[in-house]
């Protein structure tokens, strides 16, 4: 799998993401500056976390209008894979590649802690190496991760199986206690209708090494890598 990480000014988890991708694929991803306009030859486009353009105005708003974005739209339109994590998820919603928006956390504070996620379906390119309904741990680090969409949109996402992950307790309960940022219906991540574009707030890329506290995030990167090896 040939992966590219898109670097906007203010992005800060690009190195974490590069480490996780290199561990899975065996080669370093291509780093693509936001002023570039081509993603030729790339299988997976990753938009990492951080504070693109300082998150001024709205999180992801200015990145979503950067010169690289038409190439990302075209890649997605071709059925290409796009993964947006944290600020990357915000950028994908601002760009209209995923529905909804990420609002200020319900508690109005930045949240940096481990959360638990429930895998809603284990048959996508991203989640094939998880078990259905598996609970895994991932660090949260965001101030604006409160997923919002109109109720019809939420119904459609659920009805079409496009919810990727939900915030859960370690035992797998989906409740308000597990939902620290106040997301609608505990949604932590969603897919595009073709299941190729994935956006999520937590950081699986920061849990791919036992030394850092676990490898709960590793199956996601191994899974997408295996999807291209097949």
């Amino acid at each position: 799998m040939r992966a590219a990480i898109v670097v906007f000014p203010g992005i800060n988890r690009e190195r974490d993401m590069a480490i996780a991708l290199e561990r899975a694929t065996g080669r370093p991803p291509r780093m693509v500056w936001h002023k570039e306009t081509s993603l030729d030859g790339i299988d997976l486009v990753v938009i990492p976390g951080g504070f693109s353009f300082g998150d001024y105005l709205r999180c992801g708003a200015m990145a979503a209008r950067s010169p690289i974005m038409p190439a990302i739209h075209a890649h997605a339109a071709r059925g290409g894979h796009v993964l947006g994590v944290c600020n990357g998820f915000q950028i994908l919603t601002e760009a209209g590649l995923l529905p909804g928006a990420l609002l200020r956390n319900a508690g109005l504070r930045f949240l940096s802690m481990d959360c638990h996620l429930r895998v809603e379906r284990a048959d996508t390119d991203y989640t094939a190496q998880y078990q259905p309904r598996e609970i895994f741990r991932a660090p949260l680090a965001h101030g604006d991760g409160n997923y919002f969409a109109e109720s019809e949109t939420l119904d459609r996402l659920e009805g079409e199986g496009l919810v990727a992950f939900r915030y859960a307790t370690p035992k797998g309960e989906i409740n308000a206690h597990a939902n620290r940022n106040g997301s609608a219906r505990n949604i932590a991540g969603i897919y595009s209708p073709n299941l190729r574009v994935l956006g999520l707030m937590p950081h699986p890329e920061d849990l791919v090494d036992p030394l850092m506290g676990g490898i709960d995030g590793k199956p996601l990167f191994d899974g997408i890598t295996a999807a291209f090896a097949a």
Partner: peptide
């Protein structure tokens, strides 16, 4: 429409 507001929210 293009930048200053996110019309979703």
């Amino acid at each position: 429409r293009k930048l200053l507001a996110n019309l979703v929210i």
